[in-house]
Each structure stands twice: as structure tokens, then as C-alpha cells.
């Protein structure tokens, strides 16, 4: 019971209170770049969630099985980014060969993910928080879902924005950032929700 509660806290924290995009500022480029349509938001969110979960599954044994015994923990950034880059390529090839329908819906987003700071960020975060394998996976899943929810909400906001008459200097990136600011403001409202549910 205690474990399940702990995992629920990690999951909900990742989705709501410490949302990766809106409070940690990771993965801003895809958040602002690919959120124009609902379909692409869902696709990108799903692809990021998938890669995040797999990346934390892969990097955990590499860190505790190779880097720690050799005493070269400081190499974690290099090791992780390499693993993520290779892994994304591999996923792309496997999907293309064996699961063409899935490749069609997620394939476009995969090249964007290699240099996505959210994926490297979540693996590094798992280390700084000392999560074990199960907690790491749950945390990555929560972070990915949080990313997807933020993307979906924001795509709705943007489809409204497109029909607005915006002052010239604010068109393009500025108004997008300001809209993101208001969405982020809404997520501040979730502060304390997780503690409230589980009694702190």
C-alpha cells in the first residue's frame, strides 16, 4: 500500500504540480513548435512519453551497472545523451520495419526527440531524486503525460488565438509565449493538490 501511494504521488506530481513544460521549462521547443493542431499535439505527446519511459528503463542499468562501479558518474551526461540518440534511431528503425501503422503516426516526431531536453532532463532528474527503477519509470511516465496534457491544452488555446486580431508587434512568438504564461498560471492552481489527496 505504501509503495502504491508513493508511486501515485510521484505520478501526480509529474503530471500536475511539477509539470515538465509549464513549471520546469523542459521541452519548450516542441511545446511551442508542434502545438498548432490537436492531432500533432497528441502524437508528439505520445512519442515523448514512450521515449521517456524507455530512456529511463535503459539509462538506469547503465548508470548503476556501469558508471557507478567504474567510479565515473561524472560521465552521465555524455553516456545518457548517446544512449538516447542511439535508442531513438533504433526505435525509428524497428517501428518502420515491424509496426508500419505506428510508425506512420509517431515516426514524424521521433527525430525531434533526440535533442529534446525533456528526455535527457527526466533521466537526470531520476538520478538527482535517487529513484529506484520502478519509481524512475513511473516518474518518466508522469512527466510524459504531463507534457502531453500541456500540449493538448495549449493546442486548444492556439486554435483560438489564430482567429484573433493581434497587434502587429505581438504576432507570432510573443503572443504564443504570453498565452503559455496564462496556461502556466492555471497550473499554479494545482499546487498542494497532491499533498491534499494523500495527506502530505
Amino acid at each position: 500500500m505504501e509503495i502504491a501511494k508513493n508511486l501515485m504521488i510521484i505520478l501526480l506530481t509529474g503530471i500536475l504540480t511539477e509539470n515538465f513544460v509549464l513549471s520546469k521549462f523542459l521541452g519548450i521547443c516542441p511545446f511551442l513548435g508542434v502545438s498548432k493542431k490537436l492531432d500533432s499535439s497528441i502524437g508528439m505527446g505520445a512519442a515523448v512519453t514512450f521515449v521517456m519511459v524507455c530512456a529511463s528503463l535503459v539509462t538506469y542499468p547503465i548508470y548503476y551497472g556501469i558508471l557507478v562501479p567504474l567510479g565515473i558518474e561524472y560521465m552521465n551526461t555524455i553516456a545518457f545523451i548517446l544512449v538516447i540518440a542511439v535508442f531513438v534511431q533504433l526505435v525509428e528503425m524497428v517501428l518502420k520495419k515491424y509496426m508500419p501503422p505506428l510508425y506512420k503516426s509517431l515516426g514524424v516526431y521521433l527525430p525531434l526527440i533526440t535533442t529534446n531536453c525533456a528526455v535527457l532532463g527526466v533521466t537526470l532528474l531520476n538520478l538527482t531524486k535517487d529513484y529506484d527503477l520502478l519509481e524512475s519509470v513511473v516518474n518518466s511516465f508522469g512527466a510524459g503525460l504531463g507534457f502531453m496534457i500541456a500540449m493538448i491544452i495549449f493546442s486548444g488555446v492556439r486554435s483560438r488565438l489564430e482567429r484573433c486580431d493581434i497587434p502587429k508587434a505581438l504576432q507570432g512568438a510573443p503572443i504564443t509565449l504570453m498565452a503559455a504564461s496564462i496556461v502556466s498560471l492555471a497550473f499554479i492552481g494545482f499546487g498542494g493538490v497532491v499533498d491534499g489527496i494523500f495527506g502530505g
Binding site: 521549462f25 511551442l32 509565449l177 504570453m178 503559455a180 502556466s184
Partner: peptide, 27 residues
Amino acid sequence: LPAGGFFVLGVVIAVVNRLMKKKPREI
């Protein structure tokens, strides 16, 4: 807070666009 970060950057980019008479850019 995070919301302030988005807002300030948005305003800064808007001012730069205005001063440089740049065409609005999307990300």
C-alpha cells in the same frame, strides 16, 4: 514564477520585434 518567465520573454521579444521592425516570427 514560471508564468512570469513566459510573459517577460514574450514582452522582450515583442519589444525587439517592434524596435527592429521585424516581421513577426513563429517558432
